[in-house]
């Protein structure tokens, strides 16, 4: 009986990590929209295409990352997000759905960061808050 539970937990763990549809959706989104610049394994290329493995910098910006993905990063002075290296534009993805955004964030988080995972409700609130702030 003990053994059964042990295996059940392992299977549950493995399936959560690798085969859930949210993980696959996030992976798919990453490969189509992010991997060209940030690399197949998040390695980036120099500073021009930043690595996603700089966890210290990214962790301190955990709550901004969803907004970066939506609005992009523009190096010109009038833009909302200028980025750290101020070199090149990261394209905006204004039409991404909140669910897709959440899956993408959790995929990247699971692969490279291991921060607190993103909840749909939480991401939704971040976006609403940001939009309200922009209006003022």
């Amino acid at each position: 009986m003990k053994q059964f539970f042990f295996f059940a937990i392992i299977i549950l763990f493995v399936s959560c990590k690798f085969s859930t549809s949210t993980y696959k959706s996030g992976k798919n989104l990453y490969e189509n929209y992010c991997s060209s610049c940030h690399g197949k394994t998040g390695e980036g290329l120099g500073q021009w295409y930043p690595s996603l493995k700089d966890t210290q910098y990214l962790k301190s910006n955990r709550n901004l990352i969803p907004l970066w993905i939506i609005h992009g990063i523009q190096p010109d002075s009038s833009s909302i997000f200028k980025g750290r290296f101020n070199l090149v534009e990261m394209p905006a993805n204004k039409s991404i759905s909140e669910a897709d955004l959440c899956n993408l964030l959790n995929y990247i988080n699971e692969e490279y960061w291991q921060f607190k995972s993103y909840e749909l409700q939480e991401v939704s609130t971040m976006i609403k808050q940001f939009n309200a702030d922009q209006k003022h």
Partner: peptide
């Protein structure tokens, strides 16, 4: 081109 967000980085 340097601002290419699609295939150039690859």
């Amino acid at each position: 081109f340097t601002s290419c967000p699609t295939i150039c980085p690859k």
